[in-house]
């Protein structure tokens, strides 16, 4: 079984936010009004953490793209009362929108604040309605959603590989954020495969994972010289 993982090279990342936009379009994420977004109900599966260090003339800005970390030992799946969030054999942490009862316990349990909730019925401007992605199911009001590592793309990739009777090659399956990144800072692949680029990068001395001390074993690995 492959184990899908993501590597984000923060030394290459310019913080442009293209990944966020690509993600939003790819996954039919609702467009939240600015007023709602200001009270903390903004919906991003791929979020961008922005921190400022130092005082005015010498400000250091850090921009870190943050998807769901698809932990190998996820705290969210353990607390779900109805099995609406689960980890599959390939290490993807999925969300079943039609089963979710909206208790938001998984959001509370996630140390990375990776999940978002549909506070109202999701809405799109009219122009968007004609270009919704048919591969991704639309969510309804009152359910939790989060980054799926574009699992719908994996289905297509698998079908193609099956048809051509071959294995999935490294880099064939990539989520929308990785594909759109202008500086190629996002890598994606099978971390159990010793030949894959993701595996090689994860062994780099620059690599780190968020809050490794919690034992959640996130499958998103950051590369950075700064830390």
């Amino acid at each position: 079984m492959p184990k899908w993982a993501m590597v984000i090279d923060l030394d290459k990342c310019t913080g442009c936010g293209d990944c966020m936009a690509a993600c939003k379009l790819e996954n039919n994420i609702a467009i939240v009004s600015p007023e709602e977004a200001n009270v903390g109900r903004v919906m991003f599966w791929m979020d961008m953490i922005t921190t400022y260090e130092g005082e005015y003339p010498n400000i250091k800005v850090k921009r870190i793209p943050k998807p769901c970390f698809h932990c190998d030992n996820p705290p969210c799946t353990r607390v779900c009362p109805v099995y609406a969030t689960y980890k599959n054999d390939e290490g993807l942490v999925g969300q079943i929108y039609h089963r979710c009862i909206g208790c938001r316990y998984c959001m509370v349990a996630c140390p990375y604040t990776a999940k978002v909730f549909n506070w109202y019925e999701p809405k799109w401007p009219d122009e968007f309605k004609s270009c919704l992605n048919p591969d991704v199911s639309l969510r309804m009001v009152g359910v939790v959603e989060k980054c799926s590592f574009c699992a719908h793309r994996l289905i297509k990739v698998k079908e193609n590989a099956d048809m051509e009777e071959r294995e999935i090659y490294d880099g064939e399956y990539s989520p929308a954020c990785g594909e759109s990144c202008p500086t190629n800072a996002i890598y994606f692949g099978d971390i159990d495969n010793k030949e894959s680029q993701v595996y090689k990068l994860s062994q780099s001395s620059r690599s780190y994972r968020e809050m490794e001390n919690l034992g959640t074993e996130p499958k998103v690995i950051y590369l950075s010289k700064r830390e």
Binding site: V39, G40, R104, V108, T113, F117, W119, E121
Partner: peptide
Amino acid sequence: YGLGVTGMNQPIT
């Protein structure tokens, strides 16, 4: 209308 009518939001769920 959904839970939007409450004061809850993303980190404070």
